[in-house]
Simulated assay, not measured.
Amino acid sequence: MSTPGYQAPDLVLVGPEHVRRYRETDGEVGYEWNGVRILLLTTTGRRTGEPRTSALIFAQDGDDYLVVASQGGAPQHPNWYHNLLATPEAEIQVRAERLTVRATTATEAEKPRLWEIVTKVWPNYDTYQSRTRRPIPVVVLSPV
């Protein structure tokens, strides 16, 4: 079924392969994906304590990086979001630059403004929200 305004992404580079290629090339491969910019987010696994890395679309709001816990509109939040709730300190890689960040979830008051920023970058977020009953969080990653 097609949703108006939805653009199916090219999924040639996804998951662990995306992370591996991004790291190996400092983002020469993987920073740009389907016309958007990607960062690598490394969280601490809430059960294992092990580092877990995800390649995520991002937007910026001043010095802050914005990522969206959409999981394509799945009924549950992505694991990386649960990891950030347990341990908000994380690392991001943007091209070759690595930064320590602290994650916060946008409040109800902040979210409309930030949602507008992220949907300008990736309009599919509106489609993802229509696929699920859960409110999709916008996560603010602030450099520390």
Rank of each mutant, 00 (worst) to 15 (best):
T119C: 15
T107W: 00
E97I: 10
Q76R: 14
Q7V: 13
R23K: 15
E28L: 13
Q76D: 15
K120S: 13
V140P: 00
Y31M: 08
A8L: 11
R21N: 08
T48L: 02
P88G: 08
V36Q: 13
A74E: 11
G35T: 10
G73F: 06
H18C: 05
R46Y: 06
P143S: 07
L114V: 11
A8G: 00
L56H: 12
T87A: 14
S2L: 11
Y6E: 14
E17H: 07
L41N: 05
G72D: 04
L11W: 11
E24K: 13
W115C: 08
R98L: 00
E110P: 06
R98E: 04
V19F: 03
P88E: 10
T44A: 06
T44N: 03
I38D: 00
L41H: 04
E89Q: 14
T132D: 04
E24W: 09
V68I: 07
A8Q: 14
T44S: 09
L11K: 15
T48F: 03
G73Q: 05
P137C: 06
P88C: 10
T43R: 05
G27H: 12
E17W: 05
V144E: 12
L99V: 15
E17C: 06
T3E: 10
R98T: 12
V138H: 07
D10S: 11
T132F: 01
V138Q: 08
W80I: 05
V12R: 12
W80A: 06
T42Y: 06
V67T: 08
G30R: 09
R95F: 01
I38V: 15
V118G: 07
P51D: 06
T44K: 10
P123L: 09
E17S: 12
N124S: 07
R95Y: 00
I117L: 15
V101H: 00
L11D: 12
I57N: 10
P137I: 08
E108T: 12
A106R: 04
R20H: 12
P75F: 04
F58M: 11
D61N: 14
L40H: 01
A103F: 10
I57S: 10
A90N: 05
S2T: 14
V140C: 00
I57A: 14
L84W: 08
V138P: 05
L13C: 08
T42V: 09
S2C: 01
N34R: 00
E50T: 12
Q71R: 15
G62F: 01
R98D: 00
V12G: 12
R102A: 13
S70T: 10
V144M: 09
T132S: 02
V19S: 02
H18P: 04
T43L: 06
R52C: 07
P9F: 06
P135R: 13
W122K: 11
N83V: 03
V67F: 04
P88F: 12
A86N: 06
R113A: 15
G49W: 05
G27A: 11
I92S: 00
S54R: 13
R133Y: 03
E32T: 09
T44H: 02
V67D: 04
V12D: 13
N83Y: 04
V139G: 01
